[in-house]
Amino acid sequence: MSRVPSPPPPAEMSSGPVAESWCYTQIKVVKFSYMWTINNFSFCREEMGEVIKSSTFSSGANDKLKWCLRVNPKGLDEESKDYLSLYLLLVSCPKSEVRAKFKFSILNAKGEETKAMESQRAYRFVQGKDWGFKKFIRRDFLLDEANGLLPDDKLTLFCEVSVVQDSVNISGQNTMNMVKVPECRLADELGGLWENSRFTDCCLCVAGQEFQAHKAILAARSPVFSAMFEHEMEESKKNRVEINDVEPEVFKEMMCFIYTGKAPNLDKMADDLLAAADKYALERLKVMCEDALCSNLSVENAAEILILADLHSADQLKTQAVDFINYHASDVLETSGWKSMVVSHPHLVAEAYRSLASAQCPFLGPPRKRLKQS
């Protein structure tokens, strides 16, 4: 649940008159999402009104509101027999009622949201009550392989729920002597030191190019640089560091992050930047690179990204790559990247197969709970 924001200063709310007192009302909304995959969808019983329910879910471990999704594969009634019906059901509720908006969509073979439908307002739910769409999607369109909505005969539904909580009022009075504290510009100011090479005390040599930097900042941000300058190493004695395995453009992006906490060109060089972040123990930059690479996972590059993640101990990226390969196994196994990995990294192939087997055979063990970014 997000923290209630402070109200904007009255002088910034309007260029008009300023009242002596004010009130700011925040209506709290808890948002969460749920993904439900139905394997072997074409084998569902086709009687009209037949119901399939998901397991229950909530916004978190401490949330007492429990929900589930309900599907009628062949419609709810005679009117909707040519459609799939989809509903959000409130299973248990400690209150007399709650209000919530919802959005349903289908994830296609690429994991993209399609055929989205959402409620136009927050509906009133009581325990045992459901709301949804009797005519969510035509069955003939859903079952047509050309539309790519049932890869490997799996129907994957994605649901986003927004639950309306209580409202909170914050009130106060205006004073004539309003003090406005300026925003912190530390990142910009440190970035200026790097860009202008002011007050530098060490030189970093990268592929024949020299960059002036500040030992204190490098040591504070990177345990690797800290070790170089702290001990009686040649880098500490000469205040000069030779860097041979990072390209200059990648190095500059890494230094921008060290000084400012930002990497504006990360998406263009996420793979190389991940390697640099791993070498210099820049954990936050490493996770930022993992996130960017996750966003660009595809059938063509899944094997290469899995190898990269394994090489640099990028655990979150590795998990996402394995899950992606499992979901698109029939396509990924035909790529040149996968065939190369079979020869060069057989242990990763074995890991992917083990994960695929456990996903398809849940009876082999208890269900695993899916539970950071600093």
Rank of each mutant, 00 (worst) to 15 (best):
R3F: 12
V4P: 04
P5V: 09
S6M: 09
A11S: 10
M13I: 03
S15V: 10
P17V: 07
P17N: 05
S21G: 03
S21L: 06
S21N: 04
T25D: 00
K28I: 06
K28H: 02
T37C: 03
I38A: 08
I38Y: 06
R45C: 03
E46F: 09
I52R: 13
S54D: 04
F57V: 03
A61Q: 08
K64P: 05
L65W: 09
W67N: 00
L69H: 13
R70V: 11
K74S: 14
G75K: 07
E79V: 03
K81W: 08
Y83R: 05
S85D: 15
L86M: 09
L86E: 01
V91D: 10
V91L: 07
C93F: 03
P94E: 11
S96F: 10
E97V: 14
V98W: 07
R99V: 11
A100V: 06
K101Y: 14
F104C: 04
F104Q: 02
L107W: 07
L107N: 11
A109K: 13
A109L: 11
A109Y: 07
K110V: 15
T114C: 12
T114G: 11
T114R: 07
K115C: 04
A116K: 09
Q120G: 02
A122R: 05
K129D: 11
D130Y: 02
G132P: 00
F136T: 10
I137F: 02
I137L: 13
R139H: 13
D144M: 10
D144I: 03
E145W: 13
A146P: 11
G148M: 11
L149S: 02
L150T: 10
P151S: 06
P151I: 01
D153T: 08
D153V: 10
L155E: 00
T156S: 08
T156G: 02
T156Y: 04
F158Q: 14
V163K: 14
V164E: 08
Q165N: 11
D166K: 13
S171I: 03
S171H: 06
N174I: 04
T175K: 03
N177D: 01
V179I: 04
K180I: 07
K180L: 06
R185E: 06
L186E: 08
E189L: 11
G191L: 09
G191M: 02
G192R: 02
W194S: 11
E195L: 10
S197C: 15
S197E: 15
D201R: 00
C202P: 00
C202S: 15
C203D: 15
L204E: 00
L204N: 05
A207K: 15
G208H: 14
Q209S: 12
Q212K: 12
A213Y: 14
I217Q: 15
R221Q: 13
P223L: 11
F225D: 00
S226G: 09
M228Q: 13
H231K: 12
E232V: 13
E232T: 09
N239Q: 02
N239G: 10
R240I: 12
E242Y: 11
N244A: 04
N244D: 04
N244L: 04
V246P: 12
E253K: 03
F257E: 05
F257G: 11
G261C: 04
G261V: 05
P264C: 02
P264D: 02
P264I: 06
M269L: 05
M269Q: 04
A270H: 03
D272N: 04
L282W: 00
L282V: 12
R284F: 08
R284I: 05
D291F: 13
L293H: 11
C294L: 11
S295T: 12
L297D: 00
V299T: 12
A302C: 03
H312F: 05
H312S: 07
H312R: 04
D315H: 09
L317E: 00
L317R: 00
T319P: 02
Q320F: 05
F324W: 05
Y327C: 04
A329D: 02
S330W: 09
V332R: 00
G337F: 10
M341W: 00
V342L: 08
S344N: 08
S344W: 08
S344D: 08
H347M: 05
H347T: 02
L348M: 09
V349G: 06
A352T: 06
A352N: 13
Y353K: 00
R354W: 08
L356K: 00
L356R: 07
L356G: 08
A357E: 03
S358R: 06
G365E: 14
K369Y: 01
R370K: 15
L371K: 15
L371Y: 15
K372M: 05
